[in-house]
């Protein structure tokens, strides 16, 4: 993954406030490949890093960095069970602050540039 691209996502995320999670209405507004990824993660409830790598067709470093940024902003949560690390989408409580959607736009740009815009 190009460090320049990741830096851009990082800057974008750094500029955002921590969100109380993603609402289902936010999910609808996500750009295509990301929406597919988020829908899939919601259905699976929790997934491991390797599963996300496979689904998004990205390498370990890129996936891990993306997840770290999302974690930091409260859009994804991480928990450990029996020595395994799982990630899940944090769905916002019904009443919550507006989530900044440009986070997703910048993420999509990055994914687009990495793999020509196709997830699965």
């Amino acid at each position: 993954m190009s460090s320049g691209l990741f830096q851009r996502l990082q800057d974008e995320l750094d500029a955002q406030e921590k969100a109380a999670g993603l609402s289902m209405a936010d999910v609808l507004a996500l750009p295509d490949p990301l929406r597919n990824l988020v829908n899939w993660m919601i259905r699976e409830q929790q997934v491991e890093l390797t599963e996300i790598m496979e689904y998004a067709d990205q390498d370990r470093n890129a996936t891990a960095s993306m997840l770290e940024s999302l974690l930091e902003k409260g859009l994804v949560s991480k928990n450990e069970r029996q020595g395994k690390v799982y990630y899940r989408i944090r769905l916002a409580p019904k009443r919550r602050r507006e989530i900044p959607l440009n986070i997703w736009e910048s993420m999509e740009k990055i994914i687009d540039q990495q793999q020509g815009g196709e997830i699965s």
Partner: peptide, 13 residues
Amino acid sequence: EGYDVSILNDGFQ
């Protein structure tokens, strides 16, 4: 107050 939608998802599963 609303409620936590994640909890509902966990509940289904």
